[in-house]
Simulated assay, not measured.
Amino acid sequence: MSDDPLFMLVALACAAVLIILMLGIGSFGVGGKTAHKYSNKLMRWRIGAQAVAIALILLFVWLRGGNG
Rank of each mutant, 00 (worst) to 15 (best):
A16S: 02
I19M: 10
L12P: 01
T34C: 03
W62T: 06
F28S: 00
I54R: 00
L18I: 15
I19S: 04
I47T: 07
A51F: 11
K41C: 03
L42E: 02
L56M: 12
I25K: 01
V10E: 00
D3W: 09
V30H: 03
I20R: 01
F60W: 11
A13E: 13
R44W: 08
Y38H: 04
L6R: 01
G48E: 06
M1H: 11
Q50N: 12
G68P: 10
G32I: 08
G48D: 01
P5M: 07
A55P: 05
G31M: 06
S27K: 09
K41D: 13
G26F: 12
M43D: 03
A51L: 06
V17W: 12
G31L: 03
L42F: 10
V61H: 07
V30R: 09
N67E: 15
A55N: 04
L6T: 06
A16Q: 05
M8F: 10
G29S: 08
G32T: 04
D4C: 14
A11L: 14
V61R: 01
A11F: 14
F7Y: 11
S39P: 01
A15I: 13
N40L: 05
L12M: 15
S39Y: 08
N67D: 15
L63R: 06
L23R: 05
A16I: 03
G29K: 07
V61M: 06
A51K: 03
A15Y: 15
I19C: 08
Y38S: 02
L12W: 13
F28D: 04
A55Q: 02
K33R: 05
A15W: 15
L12I: 14
L18R: 08
G31A: 04
L9K: 01
K41H: 11
G26V: 09
F28R: 01
A49W: 07
W45K: 03
A49G: 09
A49M: 07
G32D: 00
L12Q: 14
M22V: 05
C14H: 15
V30T: 10
F7H: 05
L63M: 09
I19P: 01
P5N: 03
A49E: 06
I54L: 07
M22D: 09
G68N: 09
M8K: 08
A49F: 10
L56F: 08
S2K: 15
F28W: 04
L58R: 00
I57Q: 05
L9G: 02
N40F: 07
G29T: 10
K33Q: 04
A15D: 15
S2M: 13
L21K: 00
L12N: 08
G31I: 03
K41A: 08
L63A: 12
R44F: 03
L21M: 01
V52G: 09
G31S: 02
R64E: 15
V17A: 14
S2I: 11
A11M: 15
W45P: 02
T34L: 06
V30D: 07
I20G: 00
C14Q: 12
G29W: 12
Q50R: 07
V61A: 10
V52S: 12
L21R: 05
S27E: 15
L23K: 09
A49P: 04
M8V: 14
I47Y: 10
G68L: 14
S39E: 14
W45V: 01
C14D: 13
I25Y: 13
A35V: 05
G66V: 11
L42M: 05
M22S: 10
A49N: 07
